[in-house]
Amino acid sequence: MEAAQLATTATETASEELSLDIRGLTKVFGGLRAVSDFDMTVPRGGLYGLIGPNGAGKTTVFNMITGLYAPTEGQILFQGQELSGAAPYRITRMGIARTFQNIRLFQGLTVLDNVRIAFHTHSGYNLVEAISRLGRFGRQERALTERAQDLLAVFGLQDRQLELAKNLPYGEQRRLEIARALATQPQLLLLDEPAAGMNPTESETLMGLIRFVREEFALTILLIEHQMRVVMGICEWITVMDFGQVIARGTPEEIRTNENVIVAYLGHASGREL
């Protein structure tokens, strides 16, 4: 008991340097072990990748980090703080934002409102002020709108602000989703298949965008991706999952030639590369 306590305090000091520290994470749906004993650390400022064949459990890991699923077992530490069991909105307010595999914008609302909703936590006025239009309302609402517009301008969407989100072309929807996530002012950004459905030129642009966003907003980024070009192109470190378990981790170079990974993706490994 005491030894274990000592050990956790020791690792907790170390985890101050870490953005994300996941230990023994497990999720069981009925009889299915979707994620089993998953470990992963992401240092602050890192750009890490999480890959694996369909159904490997990647999105389940994301859903547990963001609080949409409660882990069956295990621990998730974000900057040294325990996350598991917290409500999704609290986790977002602690500084984790995400995008979704199949874009989840507020389709029927304007581009500007999509971003302004993400600023809700930082609106700076209360309900009484909103209804009476007194106090801080006028000033804060204007400031909030301007911040949302400025953020849209960074993503080249400033001319689209009054359009409905559903009317944007696909690539712009992806960009808007990232802009919206950034409006929550995160330190860690989780991207779930940002390049899904993109052609090579588009995903090239996306890679530039991810690098840009990471520098501009001083972010730690963890992304799930199927397009090997993207993952290998920008990630510093990659974790590979298959059937809910980690089968490999390493730099893109190591992963490219890792036998387990090649077997998982291609069936057998006679001298092939990913």
């Binding site: 934002a97 995400r98 507020f106 609302l109 909703i117 600023f119 309302f137």
Partner: peptide
């Protein structure tokens, strides 16, 4: 107001809304 927009976002997509 911000509260109203957040309220409408729940109708649009509850999961996205809590993730924001």
């Amino acid at each position: 107001s911000s509260h109203g927009r957040a309220m409408i976002s729940v109708r649009e997509d509850e999961i996205a809304s809590q993730s924001m």
